[in-house]
Amino acid sequence: MSTPVLDRAANTTVPVLDILAERWSPRAFDSTTPIDEAKLAAALEAARWAPSANNTQPWRFIVARRGSDLHARILDGLLGFNQAWAGNAAVLIVALAEETTADGAPLSHAQYDLGQAVAHLSVQAHADGLVVHQMSGFERATLEQLPGVEPRFAPTTVIALGQFGDVDSLPEVLQEREVAPRVRRNLDDTVLASA
């Protein structure tokens, strides 16, 4: 049985859906429990149904389960301290933006739409009791060598997915970050203009 997730609900200035307030990005992953395939499928299905400009769906995913060669290859492409914890995740997912169509037409909205798909994936996973942590620290050239990656697909983030683990298993500096207070810029500083 996995360690219960810490109570890390955001202290929002106005009420939001519980699922959004409770979602956070831990680094402590259970290193032994395999992924629940039904929950993984639900997260990917949620991403599939994200909105996109002209229904182009400019996102692709490479899904690698812990213990597979593919998981090891993705882990090898991570930078810095991401390698110290991400290998414990039951699944590593490379999220790619389809920057041009197969016939070469640019898809200027690809990064935005991929972000929406990953947000849907994250919320569904959290609703199903999984935890998600997205990473930008990776070697793009390494991930471009993974199976199925065409030149028009841009690796954009790597997602660690699985059950929450033991905070004490993290390096000390990451243990502190795992339990530090959650902070965000004030809403008034985020909205540049409102009429």
Rank of each mutant, 00 (worst) to 15 (best):
I74C: 03
I74K: 01
I74G: 03
I74W: 04
I74A: 02
L75C: 09
L75N: 06
D76R: 14
G77S: 07
G77T: 05
L78R: 13
L78P: 03
L78Y: 11
L78A: 04
L78W: 08
G80Q: 07
G80Y: 11
F81N: 12
F81I: 12
N82D: 12
N82L: 04
Q83E: 11
Q83W: 03
Q83G: 07
Q83S: 06
W85N: 01
W85D: 00
W85Y: 15
A86H: 08
A86D: 05
A86V: 11
A86K: 09
G87E: 01
G87D: 03
G87C: 04
G87P: 02
N88H: 14
N88A: 15
A89W: 02
A89F: 02
A90C: 03
A90D: 00
A90L: 02
V91I: 12
V91E: 00
L92S: 09
L92I: 10
I93K: 04
V94H: 00
V94P: 00
V94Q: 01
A95H: 05
A95T: 10
A95N: 06
A97M: 06
E98F: 00
E98M: 09
E99N: 13
E99Y: 00
E99K: 15
T100M: 08
T101D: 06
T101H: 09
A102E: 15
A102K: 14
A102R: 15
A102S: 14
D103P: 01
D103K: 09
D103H: 01
G104C: 07
A105Q: 15
A105G: 06
P106Y: 08
L107T: 12
L107Q: 15
L107G: 00
S108I: 08
S108C: 01
H109Q: 15
H109P: 00
A110E: 04
A110M: 03
A110S: 14
Y112V: 13
D113A: 07
D113Y: 00
Q116D: 04
Q116L: 15
Q116T: 10
Q116P: 00
Q116Y: 07
A117Q: 00
A117C: 05
V118T: 15
V118F: 08
V118S: 11
A119D: 10
A119M: 14
A119S: 15
A119E: 14
H120L: 05
L121N: 07
L121S: 07
L121H: 05
V123M: 08
Q124P: 11
Q124W: 01
Q124S: 08
Q124R: 14
A125H: 03
A125L: 11
H126L: 07
H126P: 08
H126S: 12
H126C: 09
A127N: 13
A127L: 04
A127G: 14
D128N: 13
G129Q: 01
G129A: 05
G129W: 01
G129L: 02
L130H: 03
L130E: 00
L130K: 06
L130Y: 00
L130M: 15
V132E: 10
V132H: 09
H133I: 09
H133K: 10
H133Q: 13
H133L: 12
Q134A: 13
Q134W: 09
M135A: 03
S136I: 08
S136V: 09
G137E: 03
F138A: 09
F138W: 12
E139L: 14
E139M: 14
E139G: 11
E139Y: 15
